[in-house]
């Protein structure tokens, strides 16, 4: 599992984990993120059960288990949180923040010790060490109960499936070429996003944020100008195409 620090300011860090060269074939590649501030850390979309061991090894190179105080699952998919039963053994005192809608479903992955903290539909702000993190509503993008994470200090938006594309292990960390990347992302977004209305509402809200890095759960990250280019592209893209 490769780990890359994408933001660092004192003890406030964002680390991206992914591009695991030992991952079994047939398992979708995912990006996991760790945000650390002071004595606390949160794991965003910690990943599937098959990735748990390499993920744990990679994470503990940065923080000990007692400092991983929070987990976040943007939605209920197995590549997001099917590792929960194992994290439940490793981090018995942690809190899991996830959409209220999915609580009784996510518990099927096994959760006896970790505390479930239901995020209300309108979103929520939490404190992590010395920073504030916003759980921003992203319902129907793609899941009916879905949140993204915005860190106003680091100016990073963890955008879940939005901006995602299934890359190979050799893919660069950041998007190299927006034109060719837009082509690659097209079908993924058209098929996986069900609602044009939800998409436009999300774009409107993201445009009000100050974003230096947009970090999706699959594929390459977007930085600076690429973020607004992506929003313009997505705005014009019709989604929910499977029924047409």
């Amino acid at each position: 599992m490769q780990a890359t620090v994408i933001y660092e300011d004192g003890d406030h860090r964002w680390i991206m984990f992914g591009r695991d060269p030992n991952k079994s074939e047939g398992i979708i590649d995912t990006n996991q993120y760790l945000i650390q501030s002071g004595d606390q850390a949160i794991l965003l979309d910690p990943g599937g059960i098959e990735l748990f061991a390499p993920m744990l090894s990679a994470v503990l190179k940065f923080v000990p288990t007692e400092k991983i105080t929070h987990l976040f699952a943007s939605h209920q998919d197995p590549d997001i949180i099917s590792s929960l039963g194992l994290w439940d053994q490793a981090l018995p005192n942690a809190k899991l923040y996830s959409p209220w809608l999915w609580e009784s479903f996510i518990r099927h992955f096994g959760m006896e010790r970790i505390e479930f903290c239901a995020i209300p539909d309108e979103g929520q702000t939490i404190s992590l060490g010395r920073i504030q993190l916003q759980f921003m509503p992203a319902h129907y993008l793609h899941s009916p109960g879905n949140f993204h994470v915005y860190d106003p200090k680091a100016k990073i938006l963890m955008s879940g499936e939005i901006g995602g594309y299934i890359e190979n292990n050799e893919a660069s960390l950041y998007v190299d070429n927006m034109t060719s990347h837009m082509q690659k992302m097209r079908k993924f977004h058209q098929r996986w996003l069900p609602s044009n209305e939800a998409k436009q509402d999300w774009i409107r809200r993201v445009r009000q944020l100050d974003v230096d890095i947009m970090a999706p759960q699959h594929g390459c990250l977007f930085q600076n100008q690429q973020v607004s280019e992506f929003l313009n592209w997505l705005e014009e893209l019709p989604v929910g195409i499977a029924v047409r």
Binding site: A53, L56, S57, L60, K61, P64, T65, Q89, A90
Partner: peptide, 17 residues
């Protein structure tokens, strides 16, 4: 509570790193 062995092994890997 006893620590799961997989956490211990990963922590040892981190120390050696």
């Amino acid at each position: 509570m006893a620590t799961p062995i997989f956490v211990t092994a990963a922590s040892i890997a981190a120390e050696l790193h």
